[in-house]
Design a protein around this nucleic acid. Structure first.
Lengths: 204, 204
DNA sequence: CGACGCATTGACAGGGCTCAATTTAAGTGG
DNA sequence: CCACTTAAATTGAGCCCTGTCAATGCGTCG
């Protein structure tokens, strides 16, 4: 059985690009990847941030597929990749892996369905709140002031994740900071009062 | 091996509701199901229409899950459902099924990612065009005037699928009808000139 | 210290949602 | 077959949310 190919990525490295033929499926060992879809005029939609233990490019398991997203390393990131034949062999030989991957795909589909509903039915500020909470759940870590997002996240990034503009994000975060819900430095956000944010996101 | 439980659904029947405990996974034998997520105030986001040969509720394979969407029969619809234990047993005993379900989940994830990008980056009229084309590809059938969508689809439905309002859809379709791109009767749309619509959706 | 990139804030405008009034068409029952 | 009912579709007018553009501030790094 193949041991996989390891890669050490520097910040900003593109692991694979949307539209490229999908050869390999990757597991993040350390660091963080940004998965995003690009649109003309530099706009992009961030689909997901993934960290250690998470996989991406399950698409690569199937024949003649292209990567549906672009994957970029946020900080120094280590990944291990397996090619499609290897993946297929292992899954067929060891069914629980296939089932487990199905579970992951279904989970991500559910999450994206949630976000799709939000994007089509809710106003920006509430969507920003939900985005922040979602990223917090997935990549938050305790700090003295509250729960900090442990990788660089600019206003533009949060806008791309939420489906809005950096200006709206900036205005909104400023307001929340005045209320003491969050603290922020350049490219870093700490949620001080998650509960208020949840109430804000859910109450109408 | 279980033969599964068959059900014949009348138009409008809810097969399962978002949030209900997910016991069964379903395959459509004939007819059509609308998969949608509901939001307060009656708004809804249509995730997908599925027809014969397509499955839904793969979520039900995994423990302690709830249906992430509501599933409603559009016309008279026959489905067959298997419970989670049966599904799991079969997938473990016969790995190609698990792999095939993974393929379906990944494909739907990719499609939803596309739609997510569109929703966050494109203007309504272009999104309506893409929605119509997508539904056409999935449920279109040849007719004398062009390609007809073979199930009742109201302005409201198309709006819920696109993430806009029925008013905007109505205005847009009226304009396209004047240009001869489509024809429409109450709850029925025929695309007469798919090529123009594609150009419109893609050219900017 | 200068330069570059991120963030903030104000002013403005426009795309598309909201609301209301009609029109059209499909059923339904006598 | 026609009157009646009901739901879908159309269309106009107004306004608001939020995107756009521009100017400035600020923090970081070479």
């Amino acid at each position: 059985m193949s041991r996989g190919e390891r890669k050490a990525l520097e910040p900003g490295t593109i692991l694979f690009r949307e539209g490229d033929p999908a050869y390999k499926c990757y597991l993040v060992l350390s660091g963080r990847l940004k998965l995003a879809k690009l649109h003309e005029q530099g706009k992009e939609a961030i689909i997901r941030y993934i960290g250690p233990g998470e996989i991406t490019a399950a698409t690569a398991v199937f024949k003649e597929k292209e990567y549906p997203v672009t994957s970029e390393a946020i900080g120094d990131t280590d990944v291990i990749g397996w090619n499609k034949h290897t993946m297929m062999e292992i899954m067929l030989a060891y069914p629980p892996l296939a089932v487990s991957m199905l579970g992951i795909a279904v989970e991500r589909l559910d999450e994206l369905q949630d976000r799709y509903l939000e994007l089509s039915a809710e106003q920006v500020e509430r969507r920003i709140a939900r985005s922040l909470l979602r990223i917090m759940k997935q990549s938050g870590c305790r700090s003295e002031d509250g729960i900090a997002i442990d990788f660089p996240l600019s206003r533009q990034d949060l806008a791309d994740y939420t489906g809005t503009t950096l200006y709206t994000v900036s205005r909104t975060l400023s307001a929340w900071e005045k209320r003491g819900w969050i603290k922020s430095k350049r490219e870093h956000i700490t949620i001080c009062d998650p509960h208020s944010l949840v109430t804000y996101a859910e109450h109408y």
